[in-house]
Computed example of a mutant assay.
Amino acid sequence: MAAQNDQLDSSFNDLDYLSGFGNSLESEAIAGALPRGQNSPLLCPYGLYAEQISGTSFTAPRKLNHRSWMYRIKPSVTHEPFAPRSPSHGKLVSEFNDSNSVTTPTQLRWRPVDIPDRPTDFIDGLFTVCGAGSSFLRHGYAIHMYTANKSMENCALCNADGDFLIVPQKGRLWITTECGKLHVSPGEIAVLPQGFRFSVEMPDGPSRGYVAEIFGTHFQLPDLGPIGANGLAASRDFLVPKAWFEDGMRPGYTIVQKYGGELFTAKQDFSPFNVVAWHGNYAPYKVGLKLLSN
């Protein structure tokens, strides 16, 4: 057991990242997989498929435009049609403007939630605490908590409503994304932008934490100005995964899509984490909270 834990710790510590908040980055898991001079050539290297993922309107000004190009083994759209998840999740909310919303002037606080007794992964352990606005109106936010005791198996989650900011309070997380892997420990936060597919594993066993979700915008660094040229957060401390991919058939793989606070599922026969190379400024990232306070 000690040897296994040492190997796990080594895996966490040895994972290499790119750095820079909002930087335009590039990464390839196989040398030569990134096209040069073109984003979408007629024939991509190694027969890969070029796809762009956009975090803003394509008409947004350059300084506000978020997008990345991905070069995948199979197109991401080759899956069955989405259908409402059954059984329904029933614990997520993204609309806070209707008559079902409850408000109170009383100060509130939430204690850490107990770890469930039955097998529960990140998706089933995610539930809404509060929020404001509407995901359909592209304005507002939601605050969730999660508690889970098992890794996601043969499935990935995609949030079409907004960006997830995950704050683990107990237990480390291995988050596999289309851009690569993030290893996130308590004392760190991870941001998974809208539209990215990801899967969460728990190498330490049970885990719990908090999730902030924003609609219609993306997380940004605070302005400087009166405090000078440095402070609050350094762009270089934000770490972005390097390209990593899975190949081969994965029969019965499930894509879970969060849309309007509801969950939908679609089946496909391959892993969504088949991106051999990517470049752009729209990608998942993580940062240590201690670094943000320096």
Results as ranks from 00 to 15, higher is better:
residue 72 R to F: 02
residue 153 E to M: 15
residue 74 K to M: 11
residue 278 W to Y: 00
residue 116 P to C: 08
residue 273 F to A: 12
residue 100 N to V: 07
residue 136 F to I: 15
residue 95 E to P: 14
residue 177 T to P: 12
residue 178 E to K: 07
residue 12 F to A: 05
residue 270 F to Y: 13
residue 256 V to H: 11
residue 287 V to Y: 00
residue 172 R to G: 13
residue 291 L to Y: 02
residue 56 T to E: 05
residue 262 E to T: 11
residue 24 S to K: 00
residue 258 K to T: 08
residue 142 A to Y: 04
residue 111 R to I: 12
residue 175 I to E: 07
residue 52 Q to I: 00
residue 147 T to Y: 01
residue 73 I to G: 07
residue 92 L to G: 13
residue 152 M to V: 14
residue 237 D to A: 12
residue 142 A to K: 08
residue 10 S to T: 03
residue 25 L to S: 02
residue 207 S to A: 14
residue 102 V to I: 14
residue 287 V to E: 00
residue 150 K to S: 09
residue 34 L to Y: 02
residue 246 E to V: 15
residue 34 L to N: 02
residue 21 F to R: 07
residue 96 F to L: 07
residue 260 G to W: 03
residue 150 K to C: 10
residue 293 S to M: 08
residue 163 D to W: 04
residue 165 L to N: 03
residue 80 E to C: 03
residue 36 R to E: 04
residue 292 L to M: 07
residue 81 P to L: 06
residue 37 G to C: 07
residue 38 Q to D: 03
residue 218 H to Q: 10
residue 186 P to L: 02
residue 188 E to L: 02
residue 166 I to V: 12
residue 175 I to L: 11
residue 6 D to E: 07
residue 293 S to D: 03
residue 109 R to L: 11
residue 107 Q to S: 13
residue 216 G to W: 09
residue 49 Y to R: 01
residue 143 I to P: 11
residue 263 L to A: 01
residue 25 L to W: 02
residue 50 A to S: 04
residue 274 N to S: 06
residue 11 S to D: 13
residue 110 W to G: 09
residue 90 G to C: 10
residue 138 R to S: 11
residue 157 L to Q: 07
residue 119 P to N: 05
residue 249 M to G: 03
residue 108 L to Q: 15
residue 87 P to K: 05
residue 157 L to C: 04
residue 263 L to C: 04
residue 51 E to P: 01
